[in-house]
């Protein structure tokens, strides 16, 4: 366990360092990425630009700029170039939205993915299975921006069953929060539900033929006990680990499209805006945050995996 913790911590530091350098360098080589011209505004004179350049330190060597920026990020004082607001405040403000979206969608896609996967495997080859297969294919091939737009137009704007977008804080009005999040959750989950139910279906059908399932039957367990205790218990192991990684990627920016379609000011949208404005500090912070989420959750996944499968040792 100590070995696991130390190694994960080390790899986390290494990944975040590598990601930050890559991101930083990427913005140096992008055309038109000099922030001083944008900071100075449209009508700035060369002297103004030069002044900004030396004030902000853009004339220093890259590594000095990198170290300074990273220093600011680490002590939480970094500000964005565009609005010149503290990045930390902005993220703190956007994070609840993204978390609401990711956690809710994660729960939904896990639950429905398992449900459909089990139903599909249980009725393998029959009507229900075929129906679910088609449905999951549709779900997998439906782009979020399209599904989101359709949902928000028909259910939101036209039928007015649910609000078509925007975020209401959970703390201010839980019911409204729930109603506002329902469509984004759904839009974000559909792809994953399709994938998860397919994977679970095939894992279950493989597991059913495993020798220990035959043993379980030969022991005189009821079909229900065999299915739940032995087949499902073993089939869920890969699903759970998959979920951790998908959840991390949604948290780290995978929900940008959903946030945009439903006008949710989350971290994803903040990232999108910052990239658009070639605004290095927030992009750096967000990519590092995403990397952090992925590394952390993959460690959690490994711990959960080891708990689920005693053959795995950390």
């Amino acid at each position: 366990m100590a070995r696991f913790a130390v190694r994960r911590l080390a790899s986390m530091v290494a990944v975040m360092f590598a990601i930050s350098i890559l991101t930083f360098l990427l913005f140096q080589v992008l055309p038109n990425s000099d922030p001083s011209t944008r900071l100075a505004g449209r009508t700035a004179s060369p002297t103004q630009i030069a002044k900004i350049r030396s004030d902000w330190g853009f004339d220093k060597p890259i590594y000095v700029q990198y170290i300074k920026t990273m220093g600011k990020i680490l002590n939480g004082t970094v500000t964005s170039y565009q609005q010149q607001l503290p990045v930390e405040d902005q993220i703190r403000q956007d994070l609840p939205t993204t978390l609401s979206l990711a956690i809710g969608a994660g729960v939904i896609w896990l639950a429905l993915g398992i449900l459909f996967g089990v139903l599909s495997a249980w009725r393998a080859g029959r009507w229900l299975d075929r129906g679910l297969t088609v449905l999951s294919l549709v779900g997998v091939s439906m782009p979020v921006f399209f599904l989101g737009a359709v949902l928000s137009y028909y259910i939101g704007d036209k039928a007015r069953i649910l609000p078509a977008g925007d975020y209401v804080a959970l703390t201010s009005d839980p019911w409204q929060w729930f109603k506002h999040m329902l469509m984004p959750w759904f839009a974000l989950s559909v792809l994953f539900i399709g994938v998860y139910s397919r994977i679970l279906r095939s894992t279950i059908l493989d597991t059913i033929n495993d020798d220990y399932v035959r043993t379980a039957r030969a022991k005189g367990l009821s079909e229900r006990q065999v299915m739940i205790r032995h087949v499902l218990r073993n089939s869920l192991i890969p699903i759970v680990s998959l979920w951790g990684l998908d959840f991390a990627s949604v948290l780290g920016g995978g929900a940008i499209l959903t946030e945009t379609v439903f006008n949710l000011h989350g971290v994803g949208q903040y990232a999108a805006q910052s990239v658009e404005g070639l605004d290095i500090p927030p992009v750096l912070v967000i990519t590092m945050f995403g990397a952090f989420a992925v590394v952390l959750l993959s460690a959690v996944v490994d711990i959960v995996y080891a708990a689920l499968d005693p053959r795995i040792r950390l």
Binding site: D211, A216, H230, I237, P310
Partner: peptide
């Protein structure tokens, strides 16, 4: 009793 004791017991 089955042939392959390696796979006949539930690993978890």
């Amino acid at each position: 009793i089955f042939q392959d004791p390696m796979s006949s017991l539930d690993p978890v």
